[in-house]
Design a protein around this nucleic acid. Structure first.
Lengths: 338, 338
DNA sequence: TCTGTTGCTTTAATCGTTTAAAGAATTTAC
DNA sequence: GTAAATTCTTTAAACGATTAAAGCAACAGA
């Protein structure tokens, strides 16, 4: 069952490979191939079920029509959503996606991006983790087109597609405030990543602008490596304190899930005992006894924008795009109205 | 910032490309390259930061060291889990994964597998959907190595890695029976897929072997395209009937989630009013008020096995492997003990 | 001196495409 | 009738690697 190659068609029809190539690439007119030969070639291609070898094509064209996608962790809801969106848009534009997951390790990030570059991907869409600035700079230096998504480094001038984390957090807190909450706690991950720090800033600014008290012990940063323990030891003191918060705002979906589980086991009722607001959404919310109020990232739009930007970059050389999307908001019943 | 190619190193050192290739591929000894040249070449490769062009290599070697993965829907828990496992194992064996999602459409399945084959992947790992037998046969005919995972067609002789769905369902029902349940309903998807039909068979055989009543109206098949509606109109009659079932066994994670949501809105208490057992697990169970008893697929092992089988297939030509894994069981509190 | 061996290196074909450039056949122009 | 233009086709060089096979020195043995 030998593979049929261009030459086979040429021989079958009795012409040169050049003609075959012209015809099958739709340049029959342009290259003035005779109608007769064009017809014969097209028929032969179908008859022999010719499938062009993309590897050879890529080598010759120096374009693989492939984009590399590196996500921080395939298990995140964000990752599957954005992967799906990117894949769909890429397919629409006739690109293939190769992807990998770094599990938040900078070493794996470096390794993966290098592998993808060696595979001659035409460009990269990256969700960088902590301490990957070096590699970003290195990629920038190497000239390969890339777009950061979800996360970026304000000190490095790159193309990116991101959420307006500041405003999303600010608006979320404002929502809590206007629905009557006075003591709002924010639980975030302990991280140096800009996008999460922006959520802190949005929280703090909202409190300030609405003249609400802001206590250091209400802004909590927990270690992402052991969420159950982190959440447990964060929530206990909050609930025990004399004037405990009337709302908890959580910076990620996994934080919220962990917190809701914890509240469940402690027998704390949402929203009667305390309001809960989640920055991100999660499928798991479906089974919570009350609909969880949460923000929503426009994954489809972001994925689409990332692919479009990247492909422009691949084609046009120089563009500089820093796209910021606004989060949506899905009201539930997990925040008390007072 | 031109890319450094083999020739550049050759020129830099002042030797032919052959020598450079030998040295950089660890054949220095074998090909008796002089120590002196070998050293110079290695140094130059580092100095110039040479990165081999994998596309050229692939064309020449007729091996891309890439495997194509086609899943039914990237949003399934099964898909992300198996993807992660496959990716990890592939990386371990120095393979790259290109993947795509068919969203259960046979046309997309055909298209995707063809694209991957044209990209010269060395082999495929596939989760085929309904009505993809044709394409499976076609792939078989074309001689490309592939392994089915999760689902397969008993009438087609292929390599596969799958779960023992019959036994998993049988054992689950047996668990319900031995914990005192007498009227067990099974909700499955309406499908022609073998792996789901096996779950029916396991359910029915278990009932028979344990001398329990088996009513046609307790074995329910609902349309996967509109789960909420399907579940709603399936559960209502069950609960309303004179001697309603004391347990519901659900064939997939999404069915279980939908059912639990429905039971929530109906105010039916699990397990007091009715026991619930899920064939699959789901992250969403975390937030349900009681731990959901469920089966567990050994995704890591299955992914690993699929990759290993495929790579053997790629290297050794002919092997015939039909691997069946046993499901695990995670006891929760969603089934009454009586 | 010739032949053979050893040790090392280069040549050049190959993988399957694309595409300038050259070539051939036919028609048109004068 | 010949040159020029037109129409169609082929040739052959890329793309960047791998790798048989051939080549070249130097030296040994007869």
């Amino acid at each position: 069952m030998k593979k049929v190659v261009l030459k086979d068609i040429a021989q079958h029809v009795g012409v040169s490979t050049a003609l075959v190539s012209y015809v099958l690439n739709g340049q029959a007119e342009e290259k003035q191939v005779s109608k007769e030969n064009a017809e014969k070639i097209k028929l032969a291609a179908i008859e022999l079920n010719y499938q062009p070898n993309q590897v050879a094509k890529s080598l010759r064209m120096r374009k693989t029509h492939t984009i590399g996608l590196v996500v921080a962790d395939i298990n995140y809801r964000f990752s599957t959503g954005i992967t799906r969106a990117i894949e769909a848009e890429a397919k629409r534009l006739n690109f293939t996606v190769i992807f990998g997951s770094t599990n938040e390790s900078p070493d794996k990030f470096t390794e993966l991006t290098n592998v993808l570059v060696n595979r001659q991907v035409d460009g990269l869409i990256l969700v960088p983790g902590e301490n990957s600035q070096q590699q970003i700079l290195h990629l920038q230096n190497s000239g390969i087109p890339f777009v950061l998504i979800d996360r970026y480094f304000p000190e490095i001038d790159t193309n990116y597609v991101a959420l307006d984390n500041y405003k999303a957090a600010y608006d979320a807190v404002t929502y809590l405030v206007t629905s009557g909450h006075k003591r709002v706690s924010f639980i975030n991950l302990k991280t140096s990543m800009f996008h999460l720090q922006e959520r802190d800033r949005g929280y703090l600014d909202a409190l300030k602008d609405h003249h609400l008290e802001s206590r250091p012990e209400w802004l909590i940063h927990i270690d992402g490596d052991d969420l159950p323990h982190g959440i447990a030891s964060a929530i206990q003191p909050l609930l025990n304190s004399a004037d405990k918060p009337d709302a908890i705002f959580l910076a990620t979906d996994r934080l919220t899930i962990e917190a809701l589980k914890r509240l469940n086991t402690l027998g704390v009722k949402v929203p009667d005992d305390i309001s809960v607001l989640s920055f991100d959404e999660s499928d798991a919310f479906d089974l919570f006894y009350c609909p969880v109020t949460h923000g929503r990232q426009p994954l489809e739009e972001m994925g689409e924008a990332a692919v479009k930007t990247l492909i422009n970059l691949i084609n046009n050389q120089k563009i500089n795009k820093k796209l910021t999307f606004q989060a949506g908001f899905v009201p539930g019943k997990s925040c008390r109205e007072t």
